[in-house]
Design a protein around this nucleic acid. Structure first.
Lengths: 184, 184
DNA sequence: CCAATGATGAACAAAGTGTTCAGTTATGAA
DNA sequence: TTCATAACTGAACACTTTGTTCATCATTGG
């Protein structure tokens, strides 16, 4: 079926090695040599599967469902993605800490920020906001607050539960958003 | 007086070279070799003044007044730092873009985030909030929103004026913060 | 003027990157 | 089980970057 067993194994051990090393030294400090030593694969094997370190990092992204915010179920409910995302992250703490936290080099974080921006913008437009420069700035604020909570959490600066994080996010952001929506 | 003229010159040209190179290729892509070529100083000269690339980056920080939020003048006014900071940034756009933007490698950004967190927390406590886990989360949201605006702006994603950015920040954040303060 | 300090540039070892290739091993299909 | 195929290996390679050392030259400020 989908590829050789050896291929699957090699890709898996390389990805796992990178995650382990990021948690130990941080993304920037990890070298390709570190990875192949830890994964115990040959250098040429590594380069026949990945172009470089970043490629390994991104190859993990498909598994990260939390990067893809779910759309709102009920209308009128804002930011339905919030609680499910925090909960999803809790379940995959190790992987998420490595990829999304400060030690992760910020690249996956930036990708999450971008995906979330699209989702938030769509949600606000659906809720009645009209596209404008000030809407874009509002989206930046909402996403900044949410991603700030997310990173503080995965970096261990907070020991809150997903429900508490969700509540804090809504308490900080919803009043301002509702007020902005009300004026349209 | 304060050092040799040659010393001042060397430090200056090296710092300027780094800023120029960051704007061209981004912090991560800049090498020490790039810097000394651009600055036209000897390799040994570079290392007699700076330990590495990051050291040059941080040696610029003293000039960055915008990293040090001013305290509120009138009581009752929240987030007085906001407008002055945006204005200060506009005046030093080139340097700030290099150091604070996405191309800057995120290290100065993280420092700004940290300084701002302390300022926001102090301000909220002065306004009547009591220290708690949920206050910490609120601070994260406020700082996340502000720094998000700042970065989007210096990265050119927005062409808004400082006044518009300040207004967007307050509109998004103040209602939630006032509500949280009111419950104490 | 001149001793002191800084700048120079070349050379160096060390570490990392990405490629190549001939030889070995595991795989899955027949 | 056989076997052609595809993957893995490991060593060697050229290359880039880093950070240090040192003998020599240039500028500075007293």
């Amino acid at each position: 079926m989908s590829g050789d067993r050896r291929v699957r194994r090699t890709r898996r051990v390389v990805q796992e090695a990178l995650v382990a090393l990021i948690l130990e030294k941080g993304y920037d400090a990890v070298t390709v040599t570190d990875i192949i030593d830890r994964a115990d694969v040959g250098r040429s094997t590594f380069y026949s599967h990945f172009t470089d370190k970043q490629d390994v990092l991104f190859s993990n992204l498909d598994e990260l469902a939390f990067l893809h915010p779910v759309p709102a179920a009920r209308s009128g409910e804002l930011f339905a993605f919030s609680l499910p995302m925090f909960e999803h992250v809790r379940e995959q703490r190790r992987l998420v800490r490595a990829l999304l936290g400060r030690r992760g080099g910020g690249q996956v974080y930036a990708r999450g920020e971008q995906l979330l921006s699209v989702a938030v913008r769509t949600e606000l437009v659906a809720a009645g906001a009209r596209a404008s420069a000030s809407l874009d700035l509002l989206v930046v604020c909402v996403v900044g607050a949410f991603m700030g909570l997310m990173r503080a959490w995965v970096d261990g600066e907070s020991t809150a539960t997903p429900a508490e994080l969700d509540a804090a996010f809504r308490a900080a952001i919803e009043p301002g958003v509702r007020a902005a929506l009300g004026q349209e």
